[in-house]
Design a protein around this nucleic acid. Structure first.
Length: 569
RNA sequence: CGGGGUGUGGCGCAGUUGGUAGCGCGUCUGGUUUGGGACCAGAAGGUUCGACGGUUCGAGUCCGUCCACCCCGACCA
């Protein structure tokens, strides 16, 4: 490919909108460009990377016996309504109607539709296990797209779906996908770790995310310093040290005057007590409007994902004024004592004296003790934080790191098949619902994550397996007949040998060509120059290396092909 | 959705107390160059400054409304 003809040019300065290193490089190197917020066009260089990433995913899915197919982007409303997801997904999906008024959703995911097909194609237990997958565009009306391709509103996802006869079969399929994911990410140069994740509003218990740890990630991951425990913050728990019985001798609660202190911050400042001396009480309402109070230690934050799961609701909001009145609470001075509502108490609340809101304006209570002054259901509803004890080994401490979720695997069992009455004929002659799982990888997000983790101050450093080209041939200067002739002969020789070549035939100065080569980041740079040709030689330089190597012109094609063949695939 | 920020040639930016738009890079032409973002000369490029409305003799500059984009948070398999 002649660079003079390449659709896409490099930028010396990145557009102001780009913040993360990978996003800036992606724009500067003409990998992908925005069309609108969260909508990106792959330019030719980036599209080649995307296709290579897809191919790796495809090979690893095929290896475990999964079969590729394709389902439409536009999906009819009826099935979504059958599983209850039409309404649930309303705020985050794109919808349209055909000219007859029939409703469609731009595919958010395809569980409903793959189950429909499974009912048609799989009739007997003898036909299972089955895994099918496709690469398809997904539409998600994210309220906040961010960081280039890391969070977008339309993206290609590989999603695979497994169908088994029972839970044991599902576990095998799940394990097969787990293994495929480990190989897939490794092959594309991503150091992804699996972490336990929340299953969200989709039911089921087992789910893992594959996370690449990097500061630009938007997920927070708790990692044990001692064992292999790793979990998304939405799911992470902590080991509770045994509660000491320090409840004896605590005096009866007394009211104290605290005018104008409506927050933990204000209390901390005016009473000169640590945050942990207070109880934080939140009045919340679920999707159905039911009100519940959650009591936490003053130094802990509520984890909404955990709370949603406990309340079995899709949404948790702060209560309104009427809810406060009904519960007998006063905003800013709410506390668990005497509260007329369901009370959930985080496990972090200890058997000791706390200062809590008095449910009266300008007043708090001192020496409030759980079990004596109020009762509640014990739950785990707080975020873990760095330094907490690991829930698995009880010895190590948790660190919190940021990660990009490049893939996830999810065992949902019969969640969909039961709602859809998607069944097969079992070996005992009865009809049973399919037991399934789904397995996703965001292709574009993976590509940008590769950049975010493979660059230096000069540009991208593509892992060879996913690089847009293998070799970047630079002719210096291109208007020298000898240089041009020999460079073109080399390019054609390399292409015959199956080496993918980007040939910089532009009439640019050496500085521009070297800088662009570094920026675009093709793994092997081959310089054909007047200077080198005096010695009948070429210069080879790996993007990842600091040194270069001179090789004789004769046989250079074979030498380069050999290097390319030695790379991982 | 809450908070903050930014909209001026393709990209990065400047634009004084309101007076009719400029710089660098890039692009085009000619020439000199050719191993780390070259040099000289000339030129094009803004439906006139995100949009609409207002104040004013006069608005890129002031006021209002809206839109777009970015960041933090919320949300989100």
């Amino acid at each position: 490919m002649k660079q003079s003809k390449l659709f896409g040019r490099t930028l010396r300065e990145a557009p102001a909108e780009a913040q993360t290193p990978g996003h800036r490089l992606m724009l500067r190197a003409a990998i992908a460009k925005p069309l609108a917020a969260g909508l990106y066009t792959w330019l030719p260089l980036g599209f080649r990377v995307q296709k290579k990433v897809e191919q790796i995913i495809r090979e690893e899915q095929d290896r475990i016996g999964a079969q590729e197919m394709e389902m439409p982007v536009l999906t009819p409303a009826e099935l979504w309504k059958q599983t209850g997801r039409w309404d649930m997904l309303e705020p985050i999906t794109f919808r349209t109607k055909d000219h007859n008024g029939r409703e469609f959703m731009v595919s958010y995911t395809h569980e409903e539709f793959v189950h429909l097909h499974a009912m048609q194609e799989i009739q007997s237990y003898k036909q299972m296990p089955q895994i099918v997958y496709h690469f398809q565009s997904k539409g998600r009306d994210e309220t906040r797209p961010r960081a280039g391709l890391l969070r977008v509103r339309e993206f290609v996802m590989k999603d695979a779906y497994s169908f088994d006869v029972d839970q044991a079969g599902l576990e095998k399929s799940y394990a097969a996908e787990y293994g495929a994911y480990e190989r897939t990410f490794k092959r594309m140069g991503l150091d992804a770790i699996s972490v336990e994740s929340d299953t969200g509003a989709m039911g089921g218990d087992v789910a893992h995310e594959f996370q690449v740890l990097t500061d630009v990630g938007e997920d927070r991951i708790a990692i044990c310093s001692n064992c292999d425990y790793r979990a998304n913050m939405e799911k992470a728990t902590r080991h509770m040290a045994g509660r000491s019985a320090r409840a004896d001798g605590i005096p009866a609660r007394t009211e104290i005057s605290t005018p104008g202190t409506q927050s933990i911050d204000a209390l901390e400042a005016s009473l000169r007590q640590p945050r942990s001396a207070f109880l934080k009480t939140l009045l919340l309402r679920d999707q159905a409007g039911k009100v519940v109070a959650v009591v936490l230690p003053g130094d802990r934050d509520v984890n909404e994902a955990k709370l949603r799961k406990i309340l079995a609701t899709g949404e948790v909001k702060f209560a309104n004024d009427a809810d406060f009145a009904a519960a007998g609470a006063v905003p800013g001075y709410i506390g668990p004592v005497g509260l007329k509502t369901r009370l959930l108490v985080d496990q972090g609340v200890e058997d000791r004296a706390y200062i809590a809101g008095a449910n009266k304006k300008d007043a708090h209570l001192r020496d409030v003790l759980i079990g004596r002054d109020f009762q509640g259901e014990r739950i785990d509803a707080a975020d873990v934080r760095a330094g907490d004890l690991c829930p698995k080994c009880g010895v190590g401490t948790l660190a919190i790191k940021r990660g990009v979720e490049v893939g996830n695997i999810f065992a949902y069992g019969t969640y969909y098949s039961e709602k859809m009455n998607a069944t097969f004929l079992s070996d005992d002659g009865t009809r049973k619902p399919f037991v399934g799982g789904s397995y996703g990888i965001g292709v574009g997000r993976a590509v940008q994550t590769i950049i975010e983790t493979h660059y230096d101050d000069k540009g991208i450093m593509w892992p060879p397996q996913v690089a847009p080209y293998h070799a970047h041939v630079l002719a210096l200067p291109v208007n020298d007949d000898d240089v041009r002739t020999k460079a073109e002969a080399l390019v054609s020789d390399l292409e015959k040998r199956g080496v993918e070549v980007l040939y910089d035939d532009r009439d640019e100065s050496a500085g521009v060509k070297f800088a662009d080569a570094d920026l675009i980041g093709i793994p092997l740079r081959v310089t054909v120059s007047k200077r080198n040709l005096k010695e009948d030689a070429l210069e080879l330089k790996l993007r990842s290396a600091s040194d270069s190597e001179m090789v004789p012109l004769a046989g250079a094609g074979e030498r380069i092909a050999e290097i390319v063949r030695s790379w991982p695939r």
